[in-house]
Design a protein around this nucleic acid. Sequence first.
DNA 1: GAGTGGTCTAGACCACGGG
DNA 2: CCGTGGTCTAGACCACTCC
Lengths: 255, 255
Amino acid sequence: MGTTQLETVPEPKYWHLKTVLSEALDSEFAVGEILPNERELAARFGVARATLRQALEQLELEGRLQRRRGVGTTVAPPRVGVDVGPAQGGAQGWPGAPGDVWHTEYGEEAEPPAPVARLLGVGEGTAVHAVFRSRTSGGQPVATEVVYVPAGSVPELPEAPGEAAEGAEGAARGRAVLRELHRLDLDGQDRSVELGSARADDARRLDRLPGAPVLVVTTRYIAGGRTAAVGIATFRADTCRLTFADSGAVPALVG
Amino acid sequence: MGTTQLETVPEPKYWHLKTVLSEALDSEFAVGEILPNERELAARFGVARATLRQALEQLELEGRLQRRRGVGTTVAPPRVGVDVGPAQGGAQGWPGAPGDVWHTEYGEEAEPPAPVARLLGVGEGTAVHAVFRSRTSGGQPVATEVVYVPAGSVPELPEAPGEAAEGAEGAARGRAVLRELHRLDLDGQDRSVELGSARADDARRLDRLPGAPVLVVTTRYIAGGRTAAVGIATFRADTCRLTFADSGAVPALVG
DNA sequence: GAGTGGTCTAGACCACGGG
DNA sequence: CCGTGGTCTAGACCACTCC
């Protein structure tokens, strides 16, 4: 190092630290390798632990590091590309269609959050079907999703027992909701992606702490000119790169 | 508040604070309103300023707040939906095609970052055309982009003067590169979205501090079976929601 | 110059994972 | 049990904006 700060506008220490660490990660560490602990790193660089942590947080946000309480800080593998392109759920495009990469875990009745109720065109406080799904990549959980389906979209579905179903029964109920949904003709769908922070339950499923940064993908399924269902998918932002193969018979973005 | 912590697993203070503040924002504050300053809020809640800041940081990440040094903390408007769907650049799909929402600012020769060089299939250290563009929404800058175009994709382009062109001349040069690109038949494109942190130059253009969270959209343009160009777009994660209208003649996701 | 958020320090204790 | 990262404190000073 041995920098002689000639900067007229001095860089913050944590920013400089981040650069130095980033270069060290490229040249001196292998994926999965465990770094010295925070107290030692801070001492080595001559900064307070909080300052060092600010640099580590940024590197973790960028997917370069992985930190685990009680374990340590390790060098993260490159982000995995996760396909969320159109028709990911098979030719039909509906969630749960053949070829879908999600695993249906559970179905129940629930009141959707207010923004979802608005998209669905149902009043706030109206209970709809909620199907919980999860997605893994390379053995690691990468995303959780809730698909909200208003009763009007699946009129043939037999009335559910009022109580939440347990285990296998709940999964069967979730699959039944999606199966009924497939009877509709899907006109199209649109998606949006935004940054969010993991709620406590999502964090647990994703093996992260509450508040961890996530990419929230909102999918609106259109059938018969109406919004037939809405999916809210929550991807780990530290480990995922969302890929969209928009058109053409093109292999997915590599890397 | 007056909570009597009956939680067996006590919530972190900043997490609880975030919830309280979030509810207060919903009910007691209007968009654009200025909050009390950090020292006063910390005192009011009986926590250290650093703890309060942890809560504010999360709320800013979620797009609920906007903080500006020397000014204060204000309530942010809802995130703007920014269309990045296929064919956003007009029927052709190329960057800079008629109807494109980006503003071309500058063109020069530059060495692309290593991952981009890999996508382009050129060796590291090879200079390519780099076209800088920007995008605004509602008068606010929301994104910057660099489109990298290897010389082989635009063989007809007259050789550039070695030096960087200034002002209007640079913009003209950038537009010339894109115009030449349009002579190719676009076979398709794929995109990926991931979380990143703003480099110093992007941060300045986006009116944010270095390290601010951004959504990085990588677009690969395919022509003649090869990667003809690669665009790296950087969107403000706090103010933007990226929208993809995947299929069907469907209006964009509202909200 | 006054007031704001941004950076930094030097401590302390806690929750978790693994031996 | 010990070592790890996670939370929290009570200060200090700096950079920026606006008056």
